[in-house]
Design a protein around this nucleic acid. Sequence first.
DNA 1: TTTCGAATTAGAATAATTCCAAATTCCGGC
DNA 2: GCCGGAATTTGGAATTATTCTAATTCGAAA
Lengths: 143, 143
Amino acid sequence: MIPLANKKDLKPEDFPSDIEGLRMTRQRREVLAVILRDRDHPTANDVFRRAQDRMPTISLATVYNCLEALVSHNIVRQVNLDRESSRYCPNLSDHCHFQDESSGKIHDVVFKEGVKLEDILELPKGTEISHLDISLKGNFGNK
Amino acid sequence: MIPLANKKDLKPEDFPSDIEGLRMTRQRREVLAVILRDRDHPTANDVFRRAQDRMPTISLATVYNCLEALVSHNIVRQVNLDRESSRYCPNLSDHCHFQDESSGKIHDVVFKEGVKLEDILELPKGTEISHLDISLKGNFGNK
DNA sequence: TTTCGAATTAGAATAATTCCAAATTCCGGC
DNA sequence: GCCGGAATTTGGAATTATTCTAATTCGAAA
Ligand SMILES: [Mn+2]
Ligand SMILES: [Mn+2]
Ligand SMILES: [Zn+2]
Ligand SMILES: [Zn+2]
């Protein structure tokens, strides 16, 4: 799990032929490249439209297939905010999402050093957390 | 905002005619009563099926209308977990949701005394939080 | 009792996502 | 390079939660 995050500049055809055990097809490379380039949490449809620039024949079904493959291999994260369509995020480090109400933009937010969920939640003994989602809405400060 | 939460036992027809500025119609009472009685975070369709017991003529559209009215008047909370259908929760106090992966049940989880989100998140100066969602998945301990 | 805006209703419409079955591509072995 | 089977892609249909529409009914107040 080399931080693909840094591969913003890498051309899709230069991606390794296998990432996290997932065979990288032409379409999967393109979808991944889009998500790494514009890190603005695009929806499947956003990805579709952007991928079409360099690959006019790609289909929406394929974009969904690719996204599902990338997500299930932990190459990108699926971000769900309330009832909106899913968005996709290349930031694999622990973080949550803040949706700015004036701009609509979604910002990554990290936890302060050394904070553990168990420290702040009243959880019964023996609880094991396998998945966690935190999302916020409001006015995002100067940043 | 008298804790309606405690009105589990109240019959729908005994609800006040106005709650939080919302006129309580027959259907709204019934929907609210269902949510207060079985506090298991039912979906709109769950609510619909349960409401039909005492009100066989209620329609699904009406259930959606009632839920939207109750939510927007802060009488019940809408709970969204990933891509699943919305669920409805009568607990208005600050809490988050833990979905137990073996039972599927959704548990309310409260924050430990005196925890503030600002304390644990790296937020830029001037940020104002208007809405917050935390949800967890995993194995919920003995409780 | 009449009135009139609000609420309810059935059914159609919407939209994100998934499914399907056929066509294409990929890959390892010959 | 060529073949066969498996994986992937594709366009279109299907699904499904939710919203919309337009007609009907309700109910509080006069
Ligand atoms: Mn929310
Ligand atoms: Mn999630
Ligand atoms: Zn993110
Ligand atoms: Zn709850």
